[in-house]
Every structure is written in C-alpha cells, then in structure tokens.
Amino acid sequence: MNNMSLLNSSLSQTMDYAAPILFAALGGVISENAGVVNIALEGIMRFAAFFGVWGAFVSGTPWIGLLWGIVIGIVIGSLHAYITVKWAGDQIVSGVAINVMSMGIITYLLELIFKTTGYSPPVPYFGSSVNRIHLVFLKDIPFLGAFSNLTILVWFAIILTVVMHFVLYRTVLGLRIRSVGENPHAAETLGINVAGIKWFAVIMGSIFAAFGGMALSLGTLSSFTNAMANGKGFIGLAAMIFGKWTPFGAMAASLLFASAQVIQLLLQVAASGFAKGIPLGFYLALPYILTIGALIGVVGRAVAPAADGVPYKKES
C-alpha cells in the first residue's frame, strides 16, 4: 500500500468511525436546541441497531431494515417526549430509563427471535460492496479518494449535517426550535407551540440517533452484537457539547474522536522502537485523553441553550 492510498483509506475509515458518533451528536443537537436533553441516545442507537438488523433479516434487504430502525427511533423518541414534554418529567431520569430498558429488551428479543444470546446472524447490509456508493473517478485523487467507496449512511451523515445547519439557522422552523430552547416562556407568549416543537425535535433527534445505531449494525458490521453502541451514544453527547451544540461543531468533534481512533490503530501497527513498548491500553485510551486535553486547552466553557434540560410547564 502506498502512502496515498493509506491516506485515503485512513480518511475513509475515519469517516466510517465518525458517522455513528455524528448521527448521535446531531440527534443531541436538534433535541437540546429545543431544550430537551436526551441521554437516551445510547439506548436508541442500540434499539435501532437491533431493529435494523431484524428488519433486514426478515426482508432480506437493508432498506427495510432502515425503515424498521426509523420506526423504533420514532417510538422511543415519542416515549421520551411523552415523559419529558407531556409530563414535564426529568429528562435525565427518562434517558436513564430508556438506556436501562434497551439492554433488557434487546437481549430478550434476541433470545426470542434468533434464539441466541447477545448476537444476531449476519444480514444483508449497506457495507457490502454492491451497496456501497462507488465514485471510481475519485479513487486516485489525494483526500477526495476517501470519498470513493463510502456507505450510503456515511454520505447521509454528511448531508444531514449541512441540512441541519440550514434548518437551524436559516429557516423559520429552526428559529422557533432555538427560541424554545432559549426561552420557552417567551416563545409561548408569541403563540409558538412549545410542546409541539419539543415533540418534533425529540423525535427527529431520536431518528438521527437511530441512524447512528444502524450505521454500526448495517453500515460497518452486518449483524447485531450486544456490545454494539458500547458508549458511542455518550461519545456523541460529548461531541455535541464539544461542538457547542451546532451541527458543524458536532461534525468536527466527531471527526476528531474518530481520527483519534484511527491514529491509535495506525500507531499500534506502525509503532516501532520506543512506541512499540507503549502498552495497548494507552493507545486505546488516547482518544479519550485527547478529548479531555482538547477541552482544557481549546474549548473552555461551552454554552448550552439557556433553557436546556429545564422541564417546561405551562402556567395554569
């Protein structure tokens, strides 16, 4: 492998790693801009990773899997919205509940459907060569070559980031979403349907997180394992905060986290001399140490939407 193809494949791998994190982070961005904290991203990713595989297993095509995953995203998102918006429940508590349930329910269903403990059989997925988006003409160009062989889910993550940016900062809907996250009482007095906006944002956010789960089970891998998600939802949450609650910020943070992962892999392979003596654990921990370092050094105090996480109750 020459240097250029190593560069391109590393970049492409970075994007592959970044996509699930980015989806989760974008889910967090839209939800928290409307003032609802969603730490259930992790659980939703796991649910969707499983349901996506289930759908693909039943139908034989990842597209139906994608549909199933979206539906479960809507269902869980609705539950979170019902608890936190309709009943002004604690957003963190609700998220914890969903995360805890995701473990139990999925293992339950795995045994019920696949008669297995902790993993599913392989299913058709977006990562297979037929389903990838081939842009052959880019293949030998530095940097751009990384885009020559991505899955549709990675492309979608990139497009979604751009779309989200425009929706949040250029459209009427975005203005209203942000106003609800900043000062729901003010928005209410202006006749904005605060609860409606929050429901919408939470459900959209959950759908994005669902895509994140499927980027794992139908994008990178072709099956579900119980270790799936494995904290990616929480890393997504960190990426959102790191990215200061903006879509492009979230993208940059996701790429940073992912590139730390890839660098760690490269270092492990390419390490020589002194670096070879460094135990694997340090390489694996590196992305997380880097993140803390970056937060100390560069970002400083991030600013959340003013009414983020505050249950909104209408006066009676």
């Binding site: 608890i83 609700s94 914890v96 509940a97 349930m101």
Partner: peptide, 10 residues
C-alpha cells in the same frame, strides 16, 4: 428496572 425508572420520570 428500566420501567421503574421510567415511572419515576413520569
């Protein structure tokens, strides 16, 4: 366990 927490949230 998750359901209990969900009802606590509710």
């Amino acid at each position: 366990e998750g359901l209990i927490v969900a009802f606590i949230a509710l």
